[in-house]
C-alpha cells in the first residue's frame, strides 16, 4: 500500500488560523499570505511543551484535590471544604444531580484530560501507528470537555463574594481553588499546544 497523499508529501501547508492552503511556503520563517500569521508544518516543539504542561498539571492536581477550596467560617468554628467534601455536602442535602455534575466536571474531567494527554504523548513518543482514529477521537474529546472543569472555580467565586456576613458567616477562599484553576488553565493550554497531526505522521499500520 502506498502511503496516502498528505499536505506534507505534496508540499502543501495549512494555515491553522484562517485555513488557507499554502504552496511553496519558505519554512521555517513563513507567514500566511492571507492572514499574516506564522505558519509551520507542525506546531513548533509541540511534544516538549505539551509534556511540560501536562506534568505540571498532574503535579498541581494533587493539592487541587487535597487542599480546601474554601473554608466556611462561622462564629462557632471553621469548616474547610475540599472539592470532594463539597460534593458530599451536595449529596447529603439531596441535590444529587448537582453533586454528580460537580464530581464529573471537577474530579473526573481534569483527571481524564491529564491521563488522555499522557497516553497520547506517550504513543507519539513510541511512534506507534495503531488505533490512530481512536486516539484522534480521544484528543477531540479532551478538547471539547476541557473548559467545563472551570465550573467549581466559578461556584467558589460567587460563594466567596456573597457569603460575607459580618461575624455570622463568611467564606474564605483556599489554595485548593488556586491549584484547581491552575490545573484547568494548564490543561487547556496543553490541548492547544498539542499537534493532532503528529498522531498520523507514522506510517500506516498494515
Amino acid at each position: 500500500m502506498n502511503s496516502p497523499a498528505t499536505g506534507r508529501s505534496l508540499g502543501l501547508l495549512l494555515c491553522l488560523n484562517c485555513r488557507a492552503t499554502l504552496r511553496d511556503a519558505k519554512l521555517p520563517h513563513s507567514r500566511c499570505p492571507r492572514c499574516e500569521s506564522r505558519v509551520h508544518q507542525r506546531k513548533p516543539h509541540s511534544l516538549a511543551i505539551t509534556t511540560v504542561l501536562v506534568v505540571a498539571a498532574a503535579v498541581l492536581y494533587v493539592p487541587a484535590n487535597l487542599l480546601p477550596v474554601m473554608t466556611t467560617r462561622t462564629f462557632l468554628d471553621d469548616e474547610p471544604d475540599t472539592i470532594m467534601s463539597g460534593v458530599l455536602v451536595l449529596l447529603q442535602s439531596g441535590s444529587w444531580p448537582i453533586a454528580v455534575l460537580v464530581f464529573v466536571a471537577s474530579i473526573v474531567v481534569p483527571l481524564l484530560k491529564i491521563l488522555a494527554l499522557a497516553v497520547l504523548l506517550f504513543s507519539i513518543w513510541r511512534g506507534t501507528s495503531r488505533h490512530r482514529l481512536q486516539r484522534s477521537q480521544l484528543f477531540r474529546m479532551v478538547e471539547f470537555i476541557g473548559r467545563w472543569s472551570m465550573l467549581d472555580v466559578y461556584a467558589v467565586s460567587l460563594l466567596a463574594t456573597l457569603v460575607q456576613i459580618q461575624s455570622i458567616a463568611s467564606i474564605i477562599v483556599g489554595w485548593g481553588a488556586w491549584a484547581f484553576g491552575a490545573v484547568v488553565v494548564l490543561t487547556l493550554i496543553a490541548a492547544r499546544t498539542f499537534d493532532e497531526r503528529l498522531l498520523w505522521d507514522t506510517a500506516p499500520h498494515e
Partner: peptide, 10 residues
C-alpha cells in the same frame, strides 16, 4: 486540494 487540519491528509 483541501488539507485536513487534524491529520494532514490531502
Amino acid at each position: 486540494v483541501i488539507v485536513c487540519p487534524s491529520c494532514d491528509l490531502a
